[in-house]
Simulated scan of single mutants.
Amino acid sequence: MEVRRIGLGPGETYTLRLPGRGARGYVWTWQVTGDEDAVTVAVADAGPGAERGPLPGEAVERAYTLRGRRPGARARIRFAQIRPPYPQEAPYDELLLEVEVHGKR
């Protein structure tokens, strides 16, 4: 599992782009732990081709926008690429993002 560390200021954003495998039934999920109100996570524009939809077999990149909220807070966001019909399977890919929001509490 890849681990990345980033720092954000309150209101500052960071866009995370993750490779897609939608043609094979995989989707990205995320879970925030630690100071859960440290950041928000929102699905962003998926990039080129998003408006037309994927072509058969095409991998579509997924983008997520994180926004720092509470100064001095820390959160861990675990992104996992899974196939929802098969929850017992291990994720195809995972990423752990450790986020620190700069500033004083």
Results as ranks from 00 to 15, higher is better:
P84G: 10
A44H: 13
G11T: 05
T13N: 04
P56S: 05
V41G: 01
A44G: 00
P87N: 11
I77G: 09
Y92T: 01
R21Y: 13
A38V: 07
R4E: 14
Y86K: 11
P91K: 10
P48H: 07
Y86W: 13
R69G: 00
T13Q: 13
M1P: 14
A75H: 07
L55K: 11
L55P: 00
A42G: 01
A50H: 12
L66Q: 02
P84D: 09
G25E: 07
T33A: 09
T65Q: 10
G7P: 00
G103W: 07
E51K: 12
T65C: 01
R21W: 12
V39G: 02
P85G: 02
T33W: 00
M1K: 11
K104L: 13
H102R: 15
P54R: 15
I82W: 02
V32H: 02
L97N: 12
A80P: 06
G34Q: 09
F79Q: 08
A46F: 01
A73I: 03
R78H: 14
L18M: 10
R67A: 06
E36H: 01
Q31M: 04
R78K: 13
G57I: 07
T29E: 09
R69P: 00
G20Q: 08
A38E: 05
V39N: 05
V3G: 01
T65I: 03
G7T: 12
V39H: 02
G57H: 06
L66Y: 03
K104I: 03
P87I: 11
F79D: 08
E2G: 02
Y26D: 03
T40R: 03
P48M: 08
A38L: 03
G53R: 08
A38S: 03
R74C: 10
A42C: 00
G9D: 06
A42W: 00
R83V: 12
T33C: 01
G47C: 06
P54T: 03
E36W: 00
R69V: 15
R78M: 11
L18V: 08
L55D: 11
R24K: 11
P10K: 03
H102N: 11
L55G: 09
E100D: 12
R67Y: 00
V3H: 14
E51I: 08
T65R: 14
P71L: 11
L18G: 08
R105F: 06
R52V: 13
D37M: 01
T13R: 12
E100N: 03
I77T: 08
L66S: 04
D35S: 12
Q81M: 15
G72F: 10
L95P: 07
P10S: 03
T29K: 05
R74D: 11
Q88N: 06
G11K: 05
A23S: 08
P71G: 08
G9E: 13
V60I: 12
V3I: 15
I6Q: 05
E51S: 14
P91C: 12
L97F: 11
R5Y: 12
W30G: 00
F79K: 05
P87K: 09
